[in-house]
Each structure stands twice: as structure tokens, then as C-alpha cells.
């Protein structure tokens, strides 16, 4: 009997996470031994657990894409890390594999929204920083 993808991930959590994390870290110029890579691993673990438990993934996905949104990578490559989990989840029936792939694709779309939100934050931060620098001038102008 083949398992549901959630069960397969639960049974092989550590090996899946290790593989996923190694693949994701290889996208970064610092490889697997940097604090960025370590943070990425923590967030991938949280994401994995949320997926398996059927919990909301917004928070781990947001934290993950926040790291990726300022890396020296094009968005397509940054978000490709999500698909790295697909070949790591073995022993699935064709049907279960399709379900799993669909779930990952759904995640990727969600991640795209989140990634863009962080990019928008960067632009907002630039504006806000300029305003804070001119705080007193703006206050006088608005008085």
C-alpha cells in the first residue's frame, strides 16, 4: 500500500529536510555553512512541518521568502528551491505524487505573493527611510 504524501514526509522528515536544505543552500553563494543557509534550513523545517500537519504555511513561507528576496538571485531561481522537495518524497503512488506536486505548485504560487510582498517592503523601506531622515523638515512643512 502506498502512503499519502504527508505520511511519507513525516516518516522521512530528517532526510527530506537535509536534502531540501542542501539543495536550497546550493543556490546561495555561501553554500551550506553560512548563517543565511542555517536560517533557511530552520524555515524549511517549519514549512515542512506545517505542510505535513495541514497547518497554515503563511508564516514559514513569509520567513523563507524574506531571506530569498534579498539574495543575489532572480526570483525564478529563488523560488525554484520549493520544487527541490518533489524528488525527495519517494514511495508514492502516481495519484499521491500528483497530489503532492499540486500542493508544491500551490505553495510556489503562494510563495510568489510573499516574495513580492518583501520586495515591496524593500521599496517602502527606501521611502520611509528618506522620510525619517527629513523628519523635522517634513514636520515643519506640514505644520
Amino acid at each position: 500500500m502506498t502512503k499519502a504524501w504527508e505520511q511519507a514526509l513525516r516518516d522521512n522528515r530528517q532526510s527530506v529536510l537535509d536534502g531540501w536544505s542542501a539543495g536550497a543552500s546550493s543556490l546561495l553563494s555561501g553554500g551550506t555553512s553560512s548563517p543565511v543557509s542555517e536560517a533557511l534550513t530552520v524555515e524549511l523545517g517549519r514549512l515542512l512541518d506545517a505542510m505535513v500537519a495541514g497547518d497554515p504555511v503563511d508564516e514559514p513561507l513569509s520567513r523563507l521568502t524574506r531571506i530569498m528576496a534579498v539574495q543575489d538571485l532572480p526570483p525564478s531561481k529563488s523560488l525554484s528551491l520549493l520544487f527541490g522537495i518533489v524528488p525527495l518524497c519517494g514511495g508514492l503512488s502516481a495519484d499521491a505524487r500528483d497530489h503532492f506536486r499540486a500542493r508544491v505548485e500551490e505553495l510556489a504560487l503562494q510563495a510568489f505573493d510573499s516574495f513580492m510582498k518583501h520586495r515591496e517592503t524593500i521599496y517602502q523601506l527606501k521611502v520611509d527611510e528618506g522620510r525619517r531622515r527629513m523628519h523635522m523638515a517634513l514636520r515643519r512643512a506640514e505644520a
Binding site: 548563517p35 543565511v36 536560517a39 534579498v70 539574495q71 524593500i122 523601506l125 527606501k126 527611510e129 528618506g130
Partner: peptide, 17 residues
């Protein structure tokens, strides 16, 4: 500088962490 924001976020990561 504002235009250096991406790099600042990466350079500031250890402190933020």
C-alpha cells in the same frame, strides 16, 4: 544609501539574527 538596500539587508543579517 537607499539604492544599496538589498546589500544592507544582507550585511545586516547577522545583527538582525
Amino acid at each position: 544609501a537607499e539604492e544599496f538596500m538589498d546589500m544592507r539587508m544582507r550585511g545586516g543579517f547577522p545583527r538582525a539574527n
